[in-house]
Design a protein around this nucleic acid. Structure first.
Length: 208
DNA sequence: TGATAGATTGTCT
DNA sequence: GACAATCTATCAG
């Protein structure tokens, strides 16, 4: 049944090209809102519209893993070309980022929330819950729903099984302080978090 | 509905 | 051995 819908769904889907990822990180963070994030696995396809992102600009951003160009096994991928996937394990969860900035510029955009678009049944099974709004409204939740893991580390986002495609137009974008970073000095107050205004799938906090 | 504490695993000092 | 770009359960109101 659903495979018919899959063909129909993918008919007009084209992965975004390299040029898309070459724009400045803050621009990319906003441009990603409304885009479709798609993951193909043996179990099926899951997709969601990106509704919340955060920018991390390495060298001068104390909240970023790559602050002051700190280059380790974990942050290595941030020094590579833009358009790659940077997955990172936090406690028991996995977080998904898009590398940006280009070679030797350790910048990235964290995807914080999605609006479920396709493969919703699969997402519900993977999360073990029914409520749509709780399926992907958080960085750790969306990776579980989509089936994204450390196996996707360093994967290019320009082709299957994991890629991003042009989605819908977003009417309004809001900006605010990033979440979950504490003693980061000045960086704590940067308005580097972006979300689709009034979208109910955005992770908690904030209204306007 | 809102705030708080605990879980739990990889990475770095 | 300490800490982290989080989630969830639980308790208070």
């Amino acid at each position: 049944m659903e495979w018919i819908h899959i063909a129909d769904f993918l008919k007009d889907i084209e992965p975004l090209h390299q040029e898309f990822y070459d724009q400045p990180t803050l621009e990319l963070a906003k441009a990603l809102l409304g885009c479709l994030l798609i993951k193909e696995t043996k179990e099926g396809i899951a997709a969601g519209y990106i509704v919340e992102t955060e920018a991390y600009i390495g060298p001068g951003d104390r909240a970023a893993h790559s602050y002051q160009n700190r280059r380790t096994k974990r942050t290595e991928i941030m020094f590579h070309r833009s358009g790659l996937a940077y997955t990172y394990v936090m406690h028991t969860h996995c977080l998904f980022n898009v590398v940006s900035g280009g070679e030797e510029k350790p910048e990235a955009v964290l995807v914080r929330a999605l609006e479920p678009a396709f493969g919703i049944e699969l997402m519900k099974i993977r999360r073990g819950i029914e409520e749509l709004t709780k399926l992907t409204n958080g960085p750790g939740k969306l990776t579980k729903s989509m089936g994204i893991s450390m196996e996707d580390y360093s994967r290019a986002l320009t082709s299957p099984p994991l890629y991003i495609a042009k989605g819908i137009c977003t009417e309004s974008i809001s900006a605010g302080k990033r979440i979950g970073i504490n003693n980061s000095g000045e960086a704590r107050d940067y308005l580097w978090r972006f979300w689709v205004t009034n979208n109910k799938y955005v992770s908690k906090q904030q209204k306007t």
